[in-house]
């Protein structure tokens, strides 16, 4: 009876993680140094959703989990800023600064989809809750 609630909860958790990565992507859209202080622009991260093998029931329902969070490998967005301390010193991109190439529209559409999915799962939870409550009225 509660497995439906558990499955919906797993989806809520997964979508929440997705929203967290999206907020990280948007927050870092101008980060030109990585977490180790190297002059590498931020690369967008995306969670990979996977059917949860621990939550596959005989009734055909299946939970979802985040298998991993993958980092994108995209060509940075180069801007010519020769005075910049982090400007590329030599080679083809000499005098350019590498900025992350994060597409805000993409991120916002992802965030919207994630939010809608969250709402949908909340709706399913509401329905299973009501079903449970209404079946109790058989006994009452």
């Amino acid at each position: 009876m509660f497995s439906a609630l558990d499955v919906s909860t797993s989806a809520l958790v997964a979508q929440r993680i997705r929203l967290n990565t999206i907020s990280g992507n948007i927050a870092n859209m101008s980060s030109i140094q990585n977490e180790n202080g190297e002059a590498k622009p931020y690369q967008a991260r995306y969670p990979i959703f996977q059917t949860d093998e621990n939550m596959v029931g005989p009734e055909g329902m299946a939970g979802v989990k985040v298998a991993s969070v993958e980092t994108e490998d995209k060509e940075p967005n180069y801007r010519y800023q020769p005075e910049h301390p982090l400007a590329v010193k030599e080679g083809k991109w000499k005098g350019y600064v590498a900025y992350p190439s994060i597409n805000l529209n993409e991120q916002f559409v992802d965030a919207l989809e994630s939010t809608r999915s969250y709402e949908a799962n909340l709706g399913v939870m509401e329905i299973s809750k009501n079903m449970g409550r209404q079946s109790l009225s058989i006994l009452a």
Binding site: R16, M125, L136
Partner: peptide, 24 residues
């Protein structure tokens, strides 16, 4: 995750309601 917490509270509530109905 808040969602997990609320879901577990809801599950406990539903289970208790069911037990209460059986008891009644």
């Amino acid at each position: 995750q808040p969602a997990e917490v609320f879901a577990s509270v809801q599950k406990a509530d539903m289970a208790f309601r069911m037990l209460l109905q059986v008891r009644n």
